[in-house]
Structures are given as structure tokens and as C-alpha cells.
Design a protein around this nucleic acid. Structure first.
Length: 876
DNA sequence: TCCAACACGC
DNA sequence: GACGTACGTGTTGGAG
């Protein structure tokens, strides 16, 4: 049986380009789109084994669709130069593979594909279409399948009629009707305003086609909807026409001439070498037999009912499966192990009663490779099972290799490398309310696959880390840090529940009173928490001037309200109501909800693989944003107390760590001297920027200087600074300029780092953490400016993150070595919170300060302030 | 169930 | 010349 594969060349090239960082070969030619395209081709060839194959391209700027609608595809971003220069390479690549390409004036790739698909269908061939564009789904039939790239490049979904029905509840042909109603912003097809995917599908389920919908407008419920449909009848019909693929393109070749047999290996190898596609080269050699699809029914593994030492070899890939998102006090669904000797599933009951297993888990000489170490260590820690000897972690390795990835799930990590060897958790377990433990055998196979993938990925990832000079960062910093964090999470922070409740009580009363006063001042009762209702009251009923608007109406944000303070008594009360409301809902009620009642402790989860800069984040609850600036909120900290009698809460924070890091990496002599002399850095900045002596610095000057420093640290723009200081953008820009004049070393650094980012496509921190910035070469001003600010900021913020992480690892070791009972509880970006027995305070104070200040040596001193008290509030 | 608006920390 | 401008987490209201 003949098998025709049709590829939408433009669409796949676009996808590849935007999915991958802007790679280039040693000659500086951009190759990311070619690379992604190649991965896709190899995958298609291997999986589809086509007898015939065509890659279709769009030709020229205008098509017959522009005659219908002049605005078709207008407003589209121009193809970036970095991508257009890759198209010739893609053509060259296809020629080397001996794959036909086809384009024809006046028609789009879609139409060519549609025409060929129809022709092949008539001949009873099987057809597979590859694109990134949902429009193509209209071609699906019993003989035609459509595969769409989802995110990334080889991450795909294949659709047959059933799949479309499952996903959209409509037939392939109705895809056109759907587009007619909802439009398509990327092609500038208007559709009917106000109708999105959901509404379109609902209408089509009832009326089948756009035409029927339009004829039945009377029967449709909703006044707005009727009006919209009525007003846009013509537009809907035209949109449908635009979305319809034309299947009668005059193609001057016969279907049979598009055969695909073998590729010209010599040419392909030569081209791959030219493009620096070394990984793909290796693949070609071993290539064809290599397993790149999901392992299925026939995997062989053993279900263990008694653990023996023979199956516990070193190294082993180990999966400790916990499917609930929050892993504290969670169920472990089972263990799988893959090593030299075989593949094993160990049920939780078997493992937990096996001394052999426990000894192996505890034995640090027995090396284990994990998918997510902290998750496993914490889940097991709650069951008093010790896990040592973790030598590799897929999550952390993948994060370091590319912190901007949106997922580090094993399925994605393998897919990114051109293989899919394991199913998505969501597919196996379901999502949301439907998430559940699957049948025993499905679970076993899934977990075996996971362990298998960990076992194979380890080497690849390790090599990539080494190539990037990130292996030390991985093994000496992030890996040990995961264990430190695991301990902190299990330890938890003790909360004085009665105190929180009492504060909640009082807040509730104040809120009720404020609410009453606000309603009286407004003359009507309304929901103060609703920006919509509040906006109407303030700007329509009370006729206050609306200063700012949001997409949906009037802005009622704090900075707007502050400007209206003097104009009405109600404003102050609203601001106060908001402040107290936030405290009550997020911090009192929110925290009480997550207290573990058996111990009165809160156990957060630190996400170690999320931020682009290398900082941690904290969830369920977020303990990194407990109020401090306003006294009323700061009182919340009184409820965070030491967990044992005669212990205290101890806090140590770095003073100006980011600006010190800046002084070091920029080598700005003025800044370095200032820090060496331990000057007040904001005052020093003000002196230099305003050209005044120390005693002439006014509080306003210092405030401005502080805001500029803040801007430098967080990479904000002149606009951001102007908002901060309440000045114009121009004035803000001048401030920044004067700052750069005063600190020429900083200015040089900023220029250099942007240049470097452009050359490499990424920036790094002192410890080689990376962040890729593909948009730094964008012609879109916004994207480019953003990337430039990120380039300046990430090395600063990221190095600061490196430093405190280093301190945490060292502190963890030293506390243990010194046999102290004091323990780390929290990290809040530049500060560490511990709980300490009173008789250890002196020792710990010295140790913490010493470790933090010497975590990494810079050309400026690091300074740490510390304090302690009965609660977090008192540790100030 | 999702998104927008808002507010908290660094 | 306009663009729409640190990040991350959580709550609420409101639309579907």
C-alpha cells in the first residue's frame, strides 16, 4: 500500500525556529530552524516509512485569497531574517534527502497539500499530513491523518476523525465552519467578533454549518450573540471561504512522481557536517534501528515480591512515584528500578517491609539516578525512609541546560531529544478531578518506562552539562541543594495558630466596619473586592476622574487610588480595606488552610527548577512573600515561631548582594571602592549622580538613587523607573544616563554583556548558570529591548542566587559536622531563616555569617546582617 | 474552569 | 514614533 506524507514546509520551519534557541554553526550561520526541521524529517521517515513524500511551501506574497479579502494575513510579523536565511538550507536538506518539494505561484502550501491529499485518497493511498496549523484538520478522512506539532518541534498530536470528534466534537469539514465563526488572528481572518472557540463549537454542534447558524439566528439565545451574528453575517461567510483549503491546484506532476526511497547518504552527511549537526550525525549511523517511539506492550520487567540484593545494583535508575502534586505526607504508588541486571517494579508494601531495600536506599555508596530527587526524598522522608547516594537528577540537569523550558517532565525531556520513550503523566493518570491511579499493569509499565528513560538520559544530559561547563554547578551546587531543601521542607515552620486566628478575628471586625463606612460614603451597597463594581462607583457615581484604564474598564489599582486620595474620603478607606482584605484572605485564612494540624507546622515546597534566573520559588504556601513593609502586615510574622521550647527564630540577610555582585562583574572601580569602604550605597549613588557631597544628599535624592539602583538590579526600563518615582519617562531616562556617566564601569559591562548575548545567544552567571535569549536579535523593538534588559539583569540576579545557594549547601554541611541542632527553615532570595536552640545562638551566629560572607569570593566584601527573636517578627 | 485585576515579597 | 515594558504566587470576581 502506498503511503504519502505531505509536509507543510513553512509551518514546520516556523515552529522549529521559534521552538529552539537561536543556534548557529561555527561559521555563524543560524541553523535552529534547519535543525528542528531535520529532527522532524527523521522522525517522520522512521515512523511513517513513506513511499511518497512532498514538502510544500508557500510561494510569493499574494494568493487568490487576497482577491477575496485584501487584509488576508496582513498585520503579520515579517519573517525574521534569521529564519528566512535558513530556507535555502532547508531546500538543500530536502534535496539531499531526495524528498520532493513543491510550490506554486498564487497558492499556499495548504492548498497544495489539500490537492495532493485528495488525489491520493482517490487512489486509495494512506496519507499523513504534517503541519503546525490547525486549518489542515479539515483534510482528515478515513485515509488521511493530520499530525500537528503542539509545542516544541517533535512534540506532536496526530488526528484522525475520532480524535477530532473527541477534541472538538465536530467533523473535519466543520473545522472550516469553526474558523468562519471564530476567525484566526494569525491569518487576520476576522470571523465573528465575540465568538471564540467555545462558542463556535457550541453553535456548530447544534446547527452544523455557518450557513445554518446564520439562518437560525432567531433561535439562538443571548441578545448580544444575536446582534453580533446579525451584524457580521457577510464577514462570517467570507471567513469561512478564506479558511477553506482549495483542492484543485493545477499541479503539473503526477502523484507517482513524488516517490521517496533512499536518501543520498553522502550528501546528507556532508550537509550535517557543514551545519554542525553532530548529534544527528551519530543518529544517522546507528540511526535506523534506534528506538524512537513509545515502548509498549512488549516491555519485559519483573514484579518483585521479595527484594534481593541482586536486583539492587549500582548504579540504578530509581522512580519513586508520587502522583499528587503536593508530595508532603503523600502516598508512594510504587518503585521501579532499571539497571544492568534488568527492570523491576517493587510495590510500596514490598519495599517498605524489606530490610534489603531499606539498606540499599540508605547506602550512599549505592548510586541512584532519579527523575526528581527532592520529591522522592521528601515523600520517603515522611515515612522515615532514608534515601542516600543520589548521583543524578534529570529534573535539575534539564533545568540547568535550559531554564526557560516550560516542562521538565520525562516525556518532554525525551521528546526534546527527538525520542518519545515515555507517556505523559496526564495521559496515564488523567488531569484535574479525573486524576486517579490507573490499573496495576498500566501503572507498572508507565513507571518502568520512566526508570528506563532516566537510565538512558543520564549519560546524554551529563555530557551536555559537561559541554556547557555546567557539570560542577549541577553536581556541587544544585544536587546537594536539593537535599538541603528537602530537609527544610520536611522540617517545616511552626505557626502559632491561636495567634493567627486572633488576628483574623480582629481583621474581620475592622473589615466589617470599613465595609459599612465605604457603603455609606458611596450611598449604595456593593462588592468592594470587585474592580468592576468599584470602578463604576468611583468614576461614574462619584464622578472622580479616571486616571488609567485597563482592558476591561477603569483601573482601580493602588497607584491610581493614591492619586485620588485628597478628592474623596472614600479612597483612603478603600485602600485600607484592600490592605486588610489581602492580609486576611491570603495570609490569615490562606496560611491557616495549609497548617498541618498534628504538628501546627507549615511545609512549603520550594521549586528549584522554575525561575529563569536561578532563584527559588515557594508554593503551597508561598513563604517568600510574607508581609514586612507595612507594620500591620508585618505582624503576621509574629505567628511564625520556633518549634521547640527555648529555641529562637534566627534570620540572616545579605546586604545589597546584587549591587555587590554588579560591582564585581562590572569591575566598576567607584562601586568597588564604595563597598570596600562600606558606604551607604544609595547615598553614594546619589552623591555621584547629583554631583553633591555626602552631607548635601537630600532624602529625595537618596530615594531617587535607590530607585535607580533597584532598576539596575531588576532590569526595569526607563518607563518602569518613571512609574516608580512618579516622574516622566524622559526624566527617568536622564537619571539612568547620569547613573551610567557616574559609573562608567557599569555602562561598559552593560554594553559588553549585550554584545556577548548576541554572539552566544545566552548569558551566564559566575557559576555558569545559563539563560538563552533568542530574542536579542529580534527586529521587534519590544522583544529585543526586553532581551537586552534580561541580558544585563540575569547575570546579576542569577549570581546572587548562586551565592546564597552555595551558602545554603555549605551551611547544611557545617551544621551537621558541628553536630548542632539548629536547622534551616526558609530562604527568601537574599536571606536565610533558621531555628536555633538558645544555647547554640552564639555559635550559629558566627557560623552563618562566616559561611554566607565567604560562600564565593568577590572583589568586594559580602556583608551579612543577622538577628533573632521568639518569632520571625522579632528577628529583625 | 479559565482569565483578568490586584497585591504581596525580592 | 509607538510599541509596553523585573519575577513569581495567590486571591477574588466574573464569564462561560
Amino acid at each position: 500500500m502506498n503511503k504519502l506524507v505531505l509536509v507543510d514546509g513553512n509551518s514546520i520551519a516556523y515552529r522549529a525556529f521559534f521552538a529552539l534557541p537561536l543556534l548557529n554553526n561555527d561559521k555563524g550561520v543560524y541553523t535552529n530552524a534547519v535543525y528542528g526541521f531535520t529532527m522532524m524529517l527523521l522522525k517522520i521517515i522512521e515512523e511513517e516509512k513513506p513511499t511518497h513524500m512532498v514538502v510544500a511551501f508557500d510561494a510569493g506574497k499574494t494568493t487568490f485569497r487576497h482577491e477575496t479579502y485584501g487584509e488576508y494575513k496582513s498585520g503579520r510579523q515579517k519573517t525574521p531574517g534569521e529564519l528566512s536565511e535558513q530556507f535555502p538550507l532547508i531546500r538543500e536538506l530536502l534535496d539531499a534527502f531526495q524528498i520532493s518539494r513543491y510550490e506554486i505561484e498564487n497558492y499556499e502550501a495548504d492548498d497544495i497539500i489539500g490537492t495532493l491529499a485528495k488525489q491520493a485518497e482517490k487512489e486509495d493511498w494512506n496519507v499523513s499530513v504534517y503541519s503546525g496549523d490547525k486549518d489542515l484538520l479539515q483534510l482528515v478522512s478515513p485515509k488521511v491523518k493530520v499530525t500537528l506539532s503542539r509545542k516544541g518541534i517533535t512534540n506532536v498530536d496526530t488526528y484522525d476523525e475520532q480524535a477530532i470528534a473527541d477534541k472538538y466534537g465536530i467533523t473535519p469539514l466543520q473545522i472550516i465552519d469553526m474558523k468562519g465563526l471564530m476567525g484566526d488572528s494569525s491569518d487576520n481572518i476576522p470571523g465573528v467578533p465575540g465568538i471564540g472557540e467555545k462558542t463556535a463549537l457550541k453553535l456548530l454542534k447544534e446547527y452544523e454549518t455557518v450557513e445554518n447558524v446564520l439562518e437560525s439566528i432567531d433561535k439562538i439565545s443571548g441578545k448580544k450573540m444575536k446582534e453580533r451574528l446579525e451584524e457580521n453575517k457577510e464577514q462570517a461567510l467570507m471567513s469561512k471561504k478564506l479558511a477553506t483549503i482549495f483542492s484543485d491546484v493545477p499541479i503539473d506532476r503526477s502523484l507517482n512522481s513524488f516517490t521517496f526511497e533512499e536518501y543520498d547518504k553522502e550528501k546528507v552527511v556532508a550537509l550535517f557536517k557543514e551545519l554542525d549537526f553532530n548529534t544527528l550525525l551519530n543518529k544517522l549511523d546507528v540511526g535506523e534501528t534506534e528506538e524512537t517511539t513509545l515502548q509498549d506492550e512488549d516491555i519485559e520487567y519483573e514484579v518483585i515480591d521479595e527484594v534481593t540484593e541482586e536486583i539492587l545494583q549500582s548504579p540504578s535508575a530509581l522512580i519513586v512515584e508520587v502522583i499528587s502534586e503536593n508530595y508532603h505526607q503523600a502516598d508512594v504508588l510504587g518503585f521501579t528500578i532499571v539497571n544492568e541486571s534488568g527492570k523491576y517494579f517493587i510495590p510500596t508494601e514490598v519495599a517498605s517491609q524489606s530490610d534489603v531495600f531499606m539498606d540499599w536506599a540508605k547506602d550512599s555508596t549505592k548510586k541512584k539516578w532519579l527523575a526528581d530527587t527532592k520529591r522522592a526524598v521528601v515523600a520517603l522522608g515522611w515515612k522515615d525512609i532514608e534515601l542516600n547516594g543520589v548521583a543524578f537528577d534529570i529534573l535539575l540537569a534539564s533545568y540547568l541546560l535550559n531554564p526557560s523550558s516550560s516542562s521538565y517532565e520525562l516525556a518532554d525531556v525525551t521528546k526534546e531529544r527527538g525520542k518519545q520513550l515515555v507517556e505523559y503523566d496526564e495521559t496515564v493518570y488523567g488531569k484535574g478531578a479525573k486524576r486517579k491511579v490507573p490499573e496495576r499493569e498500566i501503572l507498572e509499565k508507565h513507571l518502568i518506562n520512566k526508570a528506563q528513560v532516566v537510565y538512558t538520559l543520564k549519560e546524554d544530559l551529563e555530557n551536555e552539562l559537561k559541554k556547557n561547563e555546567q557539570f560542577e554547578l549541577f553536581s556541587e551546587l544544585e544536587m546537594p541543594l536539593a537535599l538541603v531543601l528537602a530537609k527544610m521542607e520536611i522540617t517545616g515552620v511552626k505557626v502559632d495558630e491561636p495567634q493567627l486566628k486572633a488576628m483574623g478575628q480582629e481583621l474581620g471586625e475592622q473589615l466589617a466596619l470599613l465595609e459599612k463606612e465605604i457603603h455609606e460614603l458611596a450611598g449604595v451597597s456593593f462588592n468592594i473586592n470587585s474592580p468592576k463594581q468599584l470602578g463604576e462607583i468611583l468614576f461614574e457615581k462619584l464622578n472622580l476622574p479616571p486616571i488609567k484604564k485597563t482592558k476591561t474598564g477603569y483601573s482601580t489599582s493602588a497607584d491610581v487610588l493614591e492619586k485620588l486620595q485628597d478628592q474623596h474620603e472614600i479612597i483612603g478607606k478603600i485602600l485600607h480595606y484592600r490592605q486588610l482584605g489581602k492580609l486576611n484572605s491570603t495570609y490569615i485564612e490562606g496560611l491557616l488552610k495549609v497548617v498541618h494540624h498534628d504538628t501546627s507546622k507549615i511545609h512549603t515546597i520550594f521549586n528549584q527548577a522554575l525561575t529563569q534566573t536561578g532563584r527559588l520559588s515557594s508554593t503551597e504556601p508561598n513563604l517568600q512573600n510574607i508581609p514586612i513593609r507595612l507594620e500591620e502586615g508585618r505582624k503576621i510574622r509574629k505567628a511564625f515561631v520556633a518549634s521547640e521550647k527555648d529555641w529562637v527564630i534566627f534570620a540572616a540577610d545579605y546586604s545589597q548582594i546584587e549591587l555587590r555582585v554588579l560591582a564585581h562583574i562590572a569591575q566598576d572601580q567607584g562601586l568597588i571602592t564604595a563597598f570596600k569602604e562600606d558606604m551607604d550605597i544609595h547615598t553614594k549613588t546619589a552623591m555621584d549622580v547629583f554631583h553633591v557631597k555626602e552631607d548635601e544628599v537630600t532624602s529625595n535624592m537618596r530615594r531617587s538613587a535607590k530607585a535607580v539602583n533597584f532598576g539596575i538590579v531588576y532590569g526595569i526600563s526607563d518607563y518602569g523607573l518613571s512609574q516608580n518615582l512618579g516622574i516622566t519617562r524622559k526624566e527617568a531616562a536622564q537619571f539612568i544616563e547620569r547613573y551610567f556617566e557616574s559609573f562608567p564601569g557599569v555602562k561598559d559591562y552593560m554594553d559588553r554583556i549585550i554584545e556577548k548575548a548576541r554572539e552566544n545567544g545566552y548569558v551566564t552567571t559566575l557559576l555558569h548558570r545559563r539563560r538563552y535569549l533568542p530574542e536579542i536579535t529580534s527586529r521587534n523593538f519590544n522583544l529585543r529591548s526586553f532581551a537586552e534588559r534580561t541580558a544585563m539583569n540575569t547575570p546579576i540576579q542569577g549570581t546572587a542566587a548562586d551565592i546564597i545557594k552555595q551558602a545554603m549547601v555549605q551551611l547544611g554541611e557545617q551544621l551537621e559536622e558541628a553536630n548542632l541542632n539548629a536547622r534551616l527553615l526558609l530562604q527568601v532570595h537574599d536571606e536565610l531563616i533558621l531555628e536555633v536552640p538558645k544555647d547554640e545562638i552564639e555559635t550559629v551566629e558566627k557560623m552563618v555569617k562566616d559561611v554566607m560572607e565567604n560562600a564565593i569570593e568577590l572583589d568586594v566584601p559580602l556583608k551579612v546582617d543577622s538577628s533573632y527573636g521568639d518569632s520571625w517578627y522579632d528577628a529583625k
